[in-house]
Computed example of a mutant assay.
Amino acid sequence: MISITSLYASLCGILILALAIRVVYLRRKNKVGIGNGGVDDLRRAVRVHANAIEYIPIVLILMAALELNGVNGWLMHVLGSLLVLSRLLHAQGLSGSPGVSFGRFWGTLVTWIVIIISVVANLVQFFAN
């Protein structure tokens, strides 16, 4: 059973849905049927949503593998909490500015750290057994 991963998958699902709703809202507001119509806010909203879609699934797959292999619950909660926090930071940072920002920088960095820790932990699990 992967109940811890399910918790963080659900939280990330809420985030992805919220980001998608924001894209739809901006498309309707700016009368853009597809793409971004050259509207800066919409272009960033599409990119924020896409970025979440690019990173969240691989982390959840890595977390599910760890949980199925019996990794301690505390590590799972650390990874899941950091994933949600980093994705929120990134969404906030990129939504506010297309350039460098606190949220974008730390959101990206922490997401990458979660991926690295998850990969290493999975490899350790594999080679230890």
Rank of each mutant, 00 (worst) to 15 (best):
M1E: 05
I2Q: 00
S3W: 06
I4D: 00
T5C: 00
S6H: 05
L7E: 03
Y8I: 01
S10A: 14
I16E: 10
L17F: 14
L19E: 15
L26K: 12
L26R: 11
R28S: 13
N30E: 08
K31S: 15
V32I: 15
G33L: 08
I34C: 12
I34S: 14
I34A: 11
G35I: 07
G37T: 04
L42F: 04
A45E: 04
R47F: 05
V48W: 02
N51G: 05
N51E: 08
I53E: 08
Y55W: 08
I56G: 06
P57Q: 06
P57L: 07
L60A: 01
L62D: 00
E67S: 02
L68S: 04
G70E: 13
N72A: 12
W74V: 12
M76K: 04
H77A: 08
L79T: 10
L85T: 11
R87T: 12
R87A: 10
Q92P: 03
Q92C: 14
S95F: 11
S97V: 00
S97H: 13
S97Q: 15
G99C: 09
V100E: 09
S101C: 00
F102N: 04
R104S: 01
R104P: 01
W106F: 09
W106Y: 03
W106D: 01
G107L: 06
L109T: 14
L109H: 07
V110F: 09
T111C: 10
T111A: 12
I113F: 15
I115Q: 06
I115V: 11
S118W: 06
V119A: 10
V120C: 08
V120K: 08
N122I: 09
F126C: 14
A128I: 15
A128N: 15
